[in-house]
Computed example of a mutant assay.
Amino acid sequence: MKAALDAIQKGDTQYLASLLNTNPNLAKKKTEQGISLLQFAAYCKNSEAVKLLKLYLDELTLHELASIGDVDGIKKILSKNPQLIDSFSADGFTPLGLAAYFGHVELVRLLLIQNANPNVPSNNSFRVTPLHSACASSNLEIAKLLIEYHADVNTKQQKGVTPLHSAAHNGNKDLVRLLVRSGADLHVKMENGKSPVDLAK
């Protein structure tokens, strides 16, 4: 298992392929965090590993599909089990949270249209909402979509960080303007006493 994780992290797809060829069931193993190798590969931004692992899996879970932005696969699962739309992955994220984190605009739109709640935080120590993820990665288009569907612009994650803190920290002026126009508090402070203005400076 460790060898596979190392291969994915290092981008050594050839070695990963040899491991899977020897032990096809490796593709179904879970990490210590409870996520699949495919989802781990998505976190590592290793698209080649994702493609390879898909060959060894009969079907993907809702959260795996969200991680790789598979709109059709998500539609199929939710058509049969709509109650799963705000369910949590093993590491604590909703499908919408994962779609926002990975920058899958069309999937974010689909999930919002199907009534995914944009204000559900991750059920882990990070407590991030989809809007936090969009702002941390400076994704203006996804942030706009989430706000259109009533995402709370002043929601706080771990350590009291708001979406505006992240946008200001990244120096993203367009995102800062969007958040402020939408009611974000310029003077809210993190647990360390820093405001968005402090981070921008």
Score class of each variant (00 low, 15 high):
residue 173 K to E: 14
residue 159 K to C: 02
residue 148 E to I: 11
residue 145 L to C: 08
residue 147 I to L: 12
residue 112 L to E: 02
residue 152 D to G: 06
residue 124 N to I: 04
residue 182 S to C: 10
residue 177 R to L: 12
residue 142 I to K: 08
residue 172 N to D: 15
residue 185 D to I: 03
residue 141 E to S: 12
residue 173 K to N: 08
residue 175 L to W: 09
residue 111 L to T: 09
residue 165 H to C: 07
residue 152 D to R: 07
residue 157 Q to N: 05
residue 130 P to I: 12
residue 186 L to E: 07
residue 169 H to N: 11
residue 179 L to R: 04
residue 173 K to R: 11
residue 109 R to Y: 09
residue 112 L to G: 02
residue 178 L to V: 01
residue 171 G to H: 12
residue 188 V to Y: 00
residue 146 L to A: 12
residue 127 R to S: 14
residue 112 L to C: 02
residue 120 V to T: 15
residue 121 P to I: 05
residue 166 S to K: 02
residue 152 D to T: 10
residue 123 N to R: 11
residue 139 N to D: 14
residue 128 V to E: 13
residue 157 Q to F: 00
residue 150 H to E: 15
residue 187 H to Q: 12
residue 139 N to G: 01
residue 184 A to C: 09
residue 170 N to A: 14
residue 118 P to V: 11
residue 140 L to D: 06
residue 149 Y to G: 05
residue 181 R to E: 15
residue 132 H to S: 07
residue 134 A to Y: 07
residue 152 D to A: 11
residue 135 C to F: 05
residue 136 A to W: 03
residue 138 S to C: 11
residue 113 I to F: 04
residue 136 A to H: 04
residue 120 V to K: 14
residue 126 F to Y: 13
residue 114 Q to D: 15
residue 145 L to T: 01
residue 137 S to R: 13
residue 163 P to D: 12
residue 188 V to G: 05
residue 140 L to I: 11
residue 131 L to M: 05
residue 179 L to Q: 05
residue 138 S to I: 01
residue 159 K to N: 14
residue 122 S to E: 12
residue 174 D to V: 01
residue 144 K to C: 03
residue 155 T to G: 09
residue 136 A to G: 02
residue 136 A to E: 11
